[in-house]
């Protein structure tokens, strides 16, 4: 799996939705299943999959799939 696929998979399993529903435009607070609880699960899943530690600024900023990619690139994950 490439990084994008890994990320999409992390979103799909954390938000408990089908992989086909995940795209870069998917945003926090506009997608009912992506609430604060799911957000914390998602953060833990991304950290485990990419073996990184996100700080508090990152998890507040991570408001869409596209934004998650941007944040991950700070940690040398390339898409």
């Amino acid at each position: 799996m490439n990084s994008a696929e890994t990320l999409y998979q992390a979103f799909a399993s954390s938000l408990d939705v089908d992989l086909s529903e995940i795209n870069d435009d998917l945003a926090y607070n506009s997608f009912p299943k992506w609430d604060s609880t799911a957000h914390m699960i998602l953060v833990a899943e991304i950290e485990a999959q990419f073996d990184i530690m996100l700080d508090t600024d990152d998890i507040i900023d991570m408001s869409s799939v596209a934004k998650a990619k941007e944040i991950l690139s700070k940690y040398e994950v390339s898409f």
């Binding site: 926090y28 607070n29 506009s30 604060s36 530690m53 700080d55 508090t56 600024d57 998890i59 507040i60």
Partner: peptide, 24 residues
């Protein structure tokens, strides 16, 4: 609404970072 809620999270983080730091 989602805008107020997002603002609350963001500000809580900014304030508590001063006491706890940025690392989780």
């Amino acid at each position: 609404d989602s805008a107020t809620s997002a603002r609350q999270s963001k500000v809580l983080v900014k304030i508590l970072q001063e006491t706890i730091g940025k690392a989780r």
